[in-house]
């Protein structure tokens, strides 16, 4: 257990150190233009959405990082369910060669 925690800690530390470098590299490729969404066209959830984008790109980014994997997993699991339902073996790949 202790070894696992040490490994997990090491990887987290590595991610904290390395990932900002990715951000730095990506930042250079995006020109410094601020794009503002026009909230006048919207009402309800769309107005909230555009306001969130205009007010805080940080919250918007956090929401993206949570929403994207969630949506991917939901629809991917749904596809798995459908494939399992028609009887495909989703546990082994069989002999697929080199």
């Amino acid at each position: 257990m202790k070894t696992r925690f040490i490994k997990l800690f090491s990887w987290c530390l590595f991610a904290c150190l390395a990932l900002p470098e990715f951000a730095h590299a990506a930042a250079a490729k995006v020109s410094n233009i601020v794009i503002v969404a026009d909230t006048r066209k919207f009402s309800g959830w769309e107005a909230w959405w555009t306001n969130l984008y205009n007010e805080s790109h940080l919250y918007f980014a956090l929401l993206t990082m949570a929403l994207i994997p969630t949506v991917g997993v939901i629809f991917g699991t749904f596809a798995d369910f459908l494939m399992g339902f028609i009887g495909i073996d989703l546990k082994s790949r069989g002999d697929v060669g080199h």
Binding site: F22, A23, V34, H57, A61, M65, I68
Partner: peptide, 9 residues
């Protein structure tokens, strides 16, 4: 990448 690009709007 999704996070960093979104942060840049």
């Amino acid at each position: 990448g999704a996070g960093t690009y979104t942060y840049k709007g």
